[in-house]
Design a protein around this nucleic acid. Structure first.
Length: 854
RNA sequence: GCGGGCGUGGUGGAAUUGGUAGACACGCCGGCUUUAGGUGCCGGUGGCGCAAGCCAUGGGGGUUCAAGUCCCUCCGCCCGCACCA
């Protein structure tokens, strides 16, 4: 290392030589030189690698969400890895073996769409992007165990994605069914419910069509309750948990059977309000309900119902979901019997009833349900109040409809003699019990969550390892034949079926069960399948006999700190939880591992001028540019300094420059001190002068502050600010008479603590000062001795307003403090001509003298 | 409509449990160093006021010796869910 400083002979014991025209000052802080140097050392030595089995050492697994490799990393990546790396470094230096791996979510539509446009194989563009990501992550100095790296598109990886599919299939958790599914006409594939937002494809923005297709599903609904309950046990942001709870949408209620006598068919409905059963005045079915046309057949409504159903099924999904839309529907000309009172209720078909939820049919209680109320008004149907609202209880109102619809609680009316006057919550239980006894209903739970549709009619994904045999049906590919390798094709364009269907040689095969001619499944899996287990693979990444060894996984899992964007609050995070539970049930994970991510941190976006960065706005700041301009340390530090990392933050070029100046100052102070100050020990308590005391006090205060900010919260911005305060204390003039040992200690401590955010410059500075490798040093510990001062600044208030500040001994009694208050002229000024009512003393802080005019 | 979050100087943000509002930084102003630019260093910087002092955390009200922090109410912005029976 030619550039290393040769420390000159020490220039004596005082710090007064800290002038500017020194050797060190001739050199500039040059990240372009420092950063690659240490990166090379870390790469050569494999510094961040951990063994599969770390033995008895405490472990920590720090993970950022799997990046999708496309083009080059953007500033959001820089932020998420700056946060994750800070956590990983802090955990390492506080005594943990830290697993901090990297990989790529390499399958997916953008690469395939690119292939459709250019004919370039998605593997080629994807692997080019991966290389670019690798290069950048290395250039940023992120501490990654590169031996564990993989892309989900590698056959050695999707081998196990297919294996997991087969395991789920074996257990009945993967199944095929014909269903009304969301078809994205632009992407030409089906989408999961989670990928449809406001009736539009999440990626394409196209209005989604409903099609009847045979598709593969994962039975995530079997895990609805556990996915809900276990949220309580994980340290995740409350709003993410709320979003998952809402998505799962558990509602407790009852199934109630309504019978159509003409056709002799029972129609169960789900309701959360069986207490309002006596208020049901009609009955509504979804247009998709398979019995609708049959029911209407032969009635005067037949033609009208047919038209309505046709229209409803072809209408835009988005419009149908609109709450404010006028209620529409058609009478079926049939009735059902209300089981509680034998009343005949007219049947309707209406598109406000959804086939996917409950049984696709509802009992309508217009008096106590907004939607039913709106429908009843539109169709002139009777409205019967069966629950009294509080306003109504004193004086029965004149207008029958006043206060309706009312969805709150209250005593029952107009119901049945044994229930009238009973509070509805109580009546609810009694009515369900009665229905159960009569065989006309039972308690029931419903979920909004549906099974996860995983098949995609696209090329660039993991092939579904199934062979369709005319005799045996869907037969799993034998484990020994895995992986089913994705074949090359000429044409990536989906034409309503997977491009894989065109790979005829690949498709044609024999049935593993009976040997007959058979065909391979040509759909591929949703890429969310890949990202639902990748974190398990990292623990045992090179295993070529199994997806992982459960014993090894047990050493690292669950992920101690997971970091990523809130946009995955539902999709990825719910699927990964489902996989973890299912795999544990199947015996592939230790039973204790029920949750993949013990703690979650969601970072905010980086904005510019208050707006999202986007190519359209032309306000994109690229990490490449920033790193070139200021170095990785500045970029990483600044991104963490702009504000709390969970909040959105506005990027500012001048702000980044300020951070660059600060790191330069830190480096220069270290270089100067290394060159000019003798390497004395920190002066012992008897040998310290006032400046030593001040500097050491500040140092230990900063250690305490930074340690708290890092371990108890994610306040990296205030941690960095504390290091800045410490450095401000070390500047030449302030240093005054401080001893070289104290000055060196303060600078080394600052470097040590900025390391998780700016690993290169801090390592360099620390090495200059001590000759030691910073990453091998334990995290500094604050010495209590310096945290407790002999005196403190006592704030003196009169009537809650600050009037003076004085130094007070830390061990002063309350009376002493009050005396000090009265001793202040400025306080006296405000007490004069007033009567002292009382004195409030907050030890160590303030005295408040309360006065009132005489 | 329901649920959640947020509102503090010119700007980003601090204020951990009700106890000094504005840490730290950007920007701006002034000074020193430098051939010069940049860098570096020193000082100042919430508003009003000559000053004593007064005012100030989206608006209004309350609790308290003391409120950015707790309570009520209104306003504004952001996010999630939304015909789920």
């Amino acid at each position: 290392m030619a550039r290393r400083f040769e420390p000159p002979v020490a220039l004596g014991g005082t710090a007064s030589i800290l002038g500017r025209c020194t050797m060190a000052a001739d050199h500039r802080y040059d990240p372009a030189e420092i950063e690659p140097h240490w990166q090379q050392v870390w790469a050569d030595e494999g510094t961040w690698e951990v063994p599969d089995d770390p033995g008895g050492d405490p472990t920590s697994y720090v993970l950022e969400m799997l990046p999708y490799p496309s083009g080059e990393p953007h500033i959001g990546h820089l932020k998420v890895y700056s946060v994750g790396d800070a956590v990983a470094h802090f955990h390492r230096r506080t005594g943990h073996r830290v697993l901090h791996p990297m990989g790529y979510d390499a399958f997916g539509l953008p690469a395939e769409n690119h292939a459709i446009k250019t004919g370039q194989h998605p593997r080629v563009s994807t692997e080019a992007a991966i290389e670019e990501f690798q290069r950048q992550f290395r250039r940023w100095g992120i501490s990654i165990d590169w031996t564990r790296e993989f892309g989900t598109h590698e056959p050695r990886i999707y081998h196990w994605t297919q294996w997991i599919f087969l395991e789920l299939f074996r257990q009945g958790l993967a199944y095929q069914k014909e269903a009304a599914v969301n078809w994205d006409p632009v992407e030409e594939t089906v989408l999961a419910n989670e990928q449809v937002v406001d009736g539009r494809g999440e990626r394409s923005g196209a209005l989604v069509e409903v099609r009847q297709l045979k598709q593969w599903f994962f039975r995530i609904t079997d895990y609805a309750d556990r996915l809900l309950e276990d949220l309580d046990a994980i340290r995740w942001p409350e709003h993410v948990k709320t979003m998952q709870r809402n998505w799962i949408g558990r509602s407790q209620g009852a199934e109630v059977v309504f019978r159509n006598e003409q056709m002799a068919v029972d129609y169960p409905v789900f309701t959360t309000r069986p207490d309002t059963l006596f208020g049901a005045t009609f009955f509504v079915m979804a247009p998709e309900h398979p019995d609708v046309l049959r029911l209407a057949a032969g009635t005067e409504h037949e033609a009208e119902v047919g038209d309505y159903v046709n229209h409803a099924l072809t209408a835009d999904n988005a419009l149908r979901g609109d709450v404010d839309k006028e209620k529409t529907g058609v009478a079926l000309g049939r009735t059902v019997t209300n089981p509680v009172n034998g009343e005949e209720l007219p049947m309707y078909v209406a598109d406000y009833v959804l086939m996917e939820y409950g049984t696709g049919a509802i009992m309508a209680v217009p008096a106590h349900d907004e939607r039913d109320f709106a429908f009843a008004k539109a169709f002139g149907l009777p409205i019967r109040r069966v629950i009294q609202s509080p306003q109504q209880q004193g004086s029965p109102c004149e207008d029958e409809l006043e206060g309706l619809p009312y969805s709150g609680d209250g005593p029952l009316v107009n119901s049945a003699p044994q229930f009238d006057g009973v509070h509805n919550r109580e009546a609810l239980r009694a009515i369900v019990q009665w229905l159960d006894d009569q065989g006309k209903g039972h308690p029931s739970v419903n979920y909004r969550l549906r099974d996860w549709l995983i098949s995609r009619q696209r090329y660039w994904g993991t092939p579904i390892p199934i062979i369709h045999c005319p005799d045996c049906g869907a037969v799993p590919v034998p484990e020994a034949d895995l992986p089913v390798v994705l074949p090359d094709v000429e044409d990536y364009k989906p034409r309503g079926r997977s491009p894989l269907a065109a790979a005829e040689e690949w498709v044609h095969t024999t049935c593993p069960r009976c040997g007959a001619t058979a065909e391979r499944e040509t759909d591929t899996m949703d890429t969310f399948v890949d990202s639902s287990w990748y974190f398990l693979r990292y623990c045992d990444a090179l295993n070529d006999r199994a997806a992982w060894d459960p014993q090894i996984v047990a050493r690292w899992m669950p992920v101690q700190q997971y970091i990523g964007g809130v946009e995955h609050a539902i999709l990825h995070l719910l699927y990964a939880r489902f996989f973890t539970k299912a795999l544990a049930d199947l015996g592939h994970l230790p039973h204790e591992i029920q949750e993949p991510f013990a703690a979650l941190f969601t970072q905010g976006m980086i904005l510019r001028d208050g707006e999202k960065m986007s190519k359209n706005r032309g306000n994109v700041v690229s990490p490449t540019t920033i790193v070139q301009q200021y170095g990785a340390d500045t970029a990483r530090c600044y991104i963490l300094f702009i504000g709390p990392p969970d909040q959105d933050a506005d990027w500012s070029d001048t702000g980044a420059e300020g951070m660059h100046r600060f790191l330069g100052r830190l480096w220069r102070l270290a270089a100067e001190a290394a060159a000019e100050l003798p390497d004395d020990p920190v002066p012992a308590s008897g040998a310290r002068n006032r400046d030593d005391e001040r500097l050491l006090r500040k140092s230990h205060w900063a250690i305490d502050k930074v340690t708290t900010d890092m371990s108890e919260r994610f306040n990296f911005n205030t941690a960095i600010a504390a290091v800045m305060e410490l450095i401000n204390e070390v500047t030449p003039v302030k240093r005054g008479d401080a001893s070289p040992g104290a000055v060196r200690f303060a600078i080394a401590t600052a470097a040590s603590m900025i390391f998780p955010f700016a690993p290169h410059v801090s390592t360099e500075a620390y090495h200059l000062l001590t000759g030691e490798r910073l990453w091998e040093q334990p995290w500094p510990a604050a010495d209590r001795e310096f945290l407790e001062a002999a005196t403190f600044e006592l704030v003196l208030q009169v009537n809650g307003k600050v009037r003076d500040r004085v130094q007070a001994p830390s061990d002063a009694s309350r009376d002493d403090l009050v005396a000090l208050a009265h001793g202040s002229d400025r306080v006296q000024q405000f007490i004069d001509r007033n009567e002292v009512v009382k004195e409030i003393v907050v030890p160590g802080k303030l005295v408040n003298v309360v006065v009132r005019p005489v």
